[in-house]
Amino acid sequence: MTRAVVFSEDLNGFKNAASLAYSIANEVYGVGYNDVKYTDKLYLIDRTEEDSIADFISSINANLYVFGNSKKDKIIAAQVAGKRKIGYIPDIISVEVSEGKKVIAERVAYSGLAISKLECELPCVVTVSKSFGEVKERNTQIERVNLKESKIKVIESKKATSSADLANAQIIVSVGRGLGSKDNVALAEELAKILGGAVGGSRPVVTELGWLPEDRQIGLSGIKVRPKLYIALGISGQPQHLVGIKDSKIIVAVNTDKNAPIVDNADYVIIGDAVEFLKTMIERLKAK
């Protein structure tokens, strides 16, 4: 294996991609908006539109194209695969190269139910969401590039304001019937604010009790979430709720009933009153 190209719009993604590239290739080129020094060479680009970046990256001759895992990274990655008419495997969690000719990689498919092992002849495009080892700073040769004009024009760009973007939230404080009353939801909001997360709820809380608006319902009949931390407060764990939170990295459950199904489906369980938990947790976090 000789050369790999690395791109991500964010630093973490770039480092993850570089770590994979170096585990396979001898020579790694980076493409980026900022002069980060994790690759042998870096093409410093002057535009941010996906198609312009994809155009440029596909013009670089390489065996492997490695991208980060943001939505934008993945669009560019797929466009590179399309332009070069080569294989594409996103979100890989493991990789090996067989006989220097093909990549064998694993990724999660079927909404998180399955791991598929895929084979792709080189050259090939992949995206990664985790690190494949340490990346060290290098003596990077930097080259500035003027990209071709894009076919799309960005008229306006703004930061999203909704604090309830559950589908993308990293931390979710979720409330169920066991919270007791609507007044206590304010405590959950407060904890979410301290943690920089969003508040969601189970179906009964949203549809029957009306403690939360409709767009905060988590589960099969609401939103499926995948935060790194999901705190389920007074939620018994109806199947339709559990399906919606399966992809969470860590699930914390606070419940008075140790037989509730959520208990089997959580990483950490506190058997106790959700309101007391909220008050204590808020106090503890504020103290720090």
Binding site: S221, S236, P239
Partner: peptide, 19 residues
């Protein structure tokens, strides 16, 4: 096998309003 676990095996597309 607990009831909720058994029910969890089934496919539901829950209506937004109770029937």
């Amino acid at each position: 096998v607990e009831l909720l676990k058994r029910l969890g095996l089934n496919k539901y597309n829950v209506d937004p309003k109770p029937h």
